[in-house]
Design a protein around this nucleic acid. Structure first.
Lengths: 354, 354
DNA sequence: TTTGCGAATGGAAACGTTTCCAAAAAAACC
DNA sequence: GGTTTTTTTGGAAACGTTTCCATTCGCAAA
């Protein structure tokens, strides 16, 4: 005969919440109507203090837990927020995820995690699904290709706050790192130590962070009255390999830099490898300054000095902003920048012969 | 009592989904009843092929998206699964999160991320909240103190699968690393290279992984007919500091080991630091074998050899298992072990004078 | 005593689905 | 052609909340 075409024909696991205590049950036991039970428990203040107390007691006794579906159906609020980020490998994103989830839980929200791989297609589909789940808000590191859809969420009443990257058009609120200042501060630090030839390894020039960090570097050089040597500047993707090629090129220069500013976090690994392979001693032969702190930077020998872009600070701020928005604040399209911090460890030394 | 929202008193952001196309609208436009519209769109096969096609078209035209709340209210299924893990810093957990989220999304589920910090209290409260959200399933790295609650979820019809750690009592399905075999294979590898004094740094003996890895190490030694020197074995918490104290102790031995098996991932950083501080050359003076691969192991100089416990394999398997369970499979309480893999890089060398 | 008024309550109507049940239509059988 | 069976449909009842509206109650004011 034929196959069974239509139904998935699954055994359908028993899904009847055994104890499922409903609001009705609570009301019945407490001898009030469902309406007052609801009022008492949601604490809208429309129930007498006495019945409220009693109902809370009864609810606790019975182990009543409100049904999220039913509640959401009426209130349109899910107590769920979406977090759409590129990956979890990058330390900033990881911290973002941890902080957002922890704080949101404390605020009574759960977090739906969504990894976009920086791929607009994935972002698009995930945004749709998140909307279907009626999230109460969204924190997103935008890929930059789905601006209209993000705006669409806003129009549908779902507050959106961008983080780490800005949305194109900058119509949404966003919380960003102070990259220009970070790169500026880092470069200044190296200059103050007496370095004059400072190699820079940084993200592609068509990314905001790549552009901004370069700008900070240039400004510091400019202020110090130093010429910029384009040979000292290397752009590349956010991967370790970039560090390898860039470091190799820089160290092969006939007049090599005395310090490297690795302003592209992912490249640090590659740079470290090259340095070690070439038998270069840090910081004696070469000073190294990295970007965006990560636990192993501190454990490395020598411990790596770093310009930290304050991932956890960003995370906290973005949570604050989102909560404001959920609370009713209008979208001001404002841009928030969190301060950077220079963490001196042991990978940069003062130049003597200056 | 967290379940009862007190007075929000917020300005209540406009939450009326502007376009909110309901099933009714679709039905009206297509000139059928809501019932058939539902049947056609959910594809239960109870609608004629022709109307089904038509309705799908109409729904698409109107941009209809089913309301999750209403649907969940009836079906009791949320298309949400919970993922409760200790943190995102440990490479295994990170990979777990990435893989689970990616695969689950492809299967039509979203993932609620929940970080427990290995704290039973947090686990307890998060499990309750996840249940409130009617998750369709749960993947959990159990802290080990909330067994009854996990069982409670199962009884409430929510399939639970443990990963990385077993639940106490082992009543739930779990997907684990083949730790005994991993430690055994690693030790064998070092033995084969001619090492006879092999230091072991491993998790506390009251954790399953600590116990099992120690067992693997002992078995390999035993098979090789070697005596075990308790001075070569160090237990400790899963933190870098453990590596520091253990490595220092081991290297200070009057007859120090020629190889270190760092079977406690987090300790690797500490060991590396000590080794570097003492000016010990790896692998010339000391062979190093780590546990659980992580990207920077490969980029380190020398690249670190490692026993990988197959985090992504575990993640994939645990997803498979959960889907089976959601599909109706009964909880067999089975224990699945995924194979380990020895990745030889450059941190172990053969001993000559053997 | 009546009137008025706020506070507390209950009844019932939503919210947008899925699904039971019966009816209608179509197809199959004899 | 009539009768049964099968397929396709529509009406309406859920699902568990919140909330509008009307009612009741107690109590102060007239």
């Amino acid at each position: 005969m034929e196959t069974f075409p239509k139904k998935p024909a699954k055994p359908r696991a028993e899904k009847t919440r055994v104890g499922a205590v409903t609001l009705r049950d609570v009301a019945r036991v407490a001898n009030v109507s469902v309406a007052t039970a609801s009022r008492a428990l949601t604490g809208t203040g429309l129930a007498s203090a006495e019945t409220q107390k009693r109902l809370i007691q009864v609810a606790a006794d019975l182990g009543y837990r409100p049904n999220t579906f039913a509640r959401g159906l009426k209130t349109k609020s899910s107590k769920l927020i979406g977090l759409a980020i590129h990956n979890l490998e990058n330390a900033s994103f990881r911290v973002l995820a941890e902080v957002v989830q922890t704080r949101m839980r404390a605020l009574g929200y759960e977090v739906i995690l969504s990894i976009t791989s920086d791929d607009p297609g994935q972002e698009r589909s995930t945004l749709a699904t998140l909307a279907d789940h009626s999230i109460d808000g969204l924190i997103v590191v935008p890929t930059g290709a789905n601006g209209p859809q993000l705006l669409g969420l806003e129009n549908a009443g779902i507050p959106v706050v961008c983080v780490v990257r800005r949305d194109e058009g900058a119509l949404l609120e966003s919380v960003l790192a102070a990259d220009p200042e970070g790169a500026y501060a880092g470069t200044r630090h190296l200059l103050a130590l007496g370095h004059r030839r400072i190699g820079l390894i940084v993200g592609r020039e068509d990314t905001t962070s790549g552009k901004e960090r370069l700008a900070g570097y240039l400004r510091a050089l400019h202020e110090a009255g130093l010429p910029v040597d384009r040979a000292l500047i290397h752009h590349g993707r956010y991967v370790p390999e970039t560090g390898v090629t860039a470091a190799n090129a820089l160290l092969a220069l006939k007049e090599p830099p005395t310090a490297l500013f690795v302003a592209n976090h992912e490249s640090s690994l590659g740079v470290l490898r090259v340095v070690s392979e070439r038998g270069i001693s840090v910081p004696d032969d070469l000073s190294l300054l990295c970007y965006e702190d990560t636990p192993w930077f501190e454990w490395q020998r020598p411990a790596l000095s770093v310009v930290d872009s304050g991932a956890s600070e960003m995370a906290n701020l973005v949570v604050d902003r989102l909560m404001q928005r959920i609370g009713g604040a209008a979208n001001g399209g404002r841009e928030y920048r969190v301060g950077v911090r220079l963490i001196e460890r042991a990978s940069c030394r003062a130049l003597e012969g200056r």
